[in-house]
Structure formats: C-alpha cells, structure tokens
Amino acid sequence: MSFLNIFKTDATRHTTMYSGHVVPDAVRCVQCGICSYNCPIGIDVRAHVWREQPVKHSECLTCGECVARCPRGVLRFVQTDLFERRDE
C-alpha cells in the first residue's frame, strides 16, 4: 500500500475527488482483496463488490488506488450525483 499515492495530482483524480465514486462489476471479481489491501484508509472495497454495491463510503478519498490496482478491471469511476446522500 502506498499512502503517498493519495497525494498524486493527476487530472483524473482532481475530477473524481469531488464528483466520482467507485462502482464494481461483480462478475469480474475473484475476491482476491488487492483493492481492500491497498485502500489507504482501510475501506473494505472487496465487501462492497461481493454485495454488488458502489463504494459510496463517507471516508472514500476517491484516490483511485483500488481502481488502478485491481488486476481484473472490476472497479471503475462514475460521476456522483452531488445531491445524493452518501451512506456510511
């Protein structure tokens, strides 16, 4: 896990940090856990994928670490509806 990665300043991150969230395509997932293992704040991304739920976690930084690390293309960013409430 690279904590420093959350300070990266690429264009994708700037966009997603305020307007995106991570959604899974569960049929691709084999529950290997690389996503959860690399999440800098310890969100259990894998558990969201098993339940086929988007990662709308109040503490998610949308740093993109899980999306980039997943070896199977399970995760991707989508635009968040800014008026939608985030769950815990």
């Binding site: 084999v30 529950q31 290997c32 856990g33 690389i34 293992y37 070896p71």
Partner: peptide, 14 residues
C-alpha cells in the same frame, strides 16, 4: 480467495 493465490505468490498480497 483461491484465485488470489497468484497475487500472494508474486508478493502483491499477504
């Protein structure tokens, strides 16, 4: 995760 063993072998996971 049995498929995860591949990533354990490469050291990407414990």
């Amino acid at each position: 995760s049995r498929p995860g063993l591949a990533y354990y072998l490469t050291g990407e996971l414990d």
